[in-house]
């Protein structure tokens, strides 16, 4: 309630400011948006379609592109559910229990935001590569992690770990644990409590976190680039495939594949917008209480 009235107050305060200044600010925002976001998007699309739809689709339907798309979807399909489980578990720990080292855990969850993805990839190479820490053991049992799917998935997970937990922790802290306690008192088991009380309460926040996580997982370049080995048709994800095509001066194909990523991103953006509006509605009703 208070924050809604506050924002309303802020808006009216801004309206009372000089109209020229306001128009200038809005124009500036639109200009920056057009220059830095819209223009590049248009360039991608126009470059992709420069030689017509035929070339565009043939670039997308080429075997290497298809395998890159498959690999990307597979990596996303493995890493996002794992992050979902981890994120919910971590958010639960942090918001419902008091324990030693809690602030360290919260800081560690944020680590992937501050570490460069390339470094993250390197860590895995140093751990699991042929000359790495576990290299000998892995070789003995013939397990391939680096330059293979497991490495790509690991790198993707590392980079996207914070998204679900980060979204859920404030939401769950705000909600407190009284509804869970009430459920327990009414005889619900741990699982019943989670399924009937906790999950419905965090549903939209969770979807939002998963959407962000998916977007990041799909577009991840740096960390995956280090561990993938760029084997065409085997360990190339979509962003890596774009890079290879571009380096081969095959601009049209590069931009075609890029526009595929762009399309996926737009779908995710819509999902994000939708889940965000649901969260805001929830927050709103929570504040009215």
């Amino acid at each position: 309630m208070t924050s809604t009235t506050l924002t309303a107050g802020d808006i009216s305060a801004a309206r009372r400011g000089s109209p020229a200044g306001r128009i200038l600010l809005i124009l500036g925002a639109y200009l920056a948006f057009a220059l830095f976001l819209l223009l590049p998007l248009l360039v991608v699309l126009s470059e992709a379609l420069k030689l017509g739809l035929g070339t565009f689709f043939s670039a997308l339907l080429e075997a290497d592109a298809i395998s890159a798309l498959k690999l990307t979807l597979l990596a996303v399909g493995i890493s996002v559910p794992l992050n979902l489980v981890f994120g919910v578990a971590a958010a639960w720990c942090v918001s419902k229990y008091e324990f030693r080292g809690k602030s360290i855990l919260v800081t560690l969850i944020d680590l992937p935001f501050s570490v460069s993805p390339v470094i993250a990839g390197l860590i895995y190479v140093l751990l699991f590569g042929a000359q790495g820490f576990f290299g000998e053991v892995l070789e003995k049992y013939d397990i391939q992690i680096i330059f293979a799917l497991p490495g790509i998935v690991l790198a993707t997970i590392f980079v996207t770990v914070p998204f679900v937990a980060r979204e859920l922790i404030p939401l769950m802290q705000e909600q407190g644990s009284q509804e869970e306690e009430a459920a327990r008192l009414l005889g619900a088991s741990g699982w019943q409590m989670f399924w009937h009380v906790t999950l419905p309460n965090i549903k939209w926040g969770l979807i939002y976190g998963v959407v962000l996580c998916t977007a990041r997982a799909m577009g991840e370049f740096g960390a995956v680039s280090v561990v993938s080995g760029h084997i065409r048709g085997y360990t190339n994800t979509l962003p890596l495939h774009v890079e290879i095509l571009y380096n081969e001066y095959n601009h049209v194909a590069a931009f075609s594949v890029a526009s595929l990523l762009l399309g996926l991103a737009l779908i995710i953006l819509l999902l994000k917008q939708w889940s965000e509006s649901r969260i805001n509605r929830l927050r709103h009703t929570a504040e009215e209480e």
Binding site: E179, E181, A182, L185, G187, A188, V197, P200, N201
Partner: peptide, 19 residues
């Protein structure tokens, strides 16, 4: 455990299931 004590509990802020 809480769930086996068979107590009715009313919270200060009610803790009704909001959904």
């Amino acid at each position: 455990d809480v769930r086996d004590r068979n107590v009715g509990f009313v919270f200060q802020h009610y803790a009704l299931f909001r959904h």
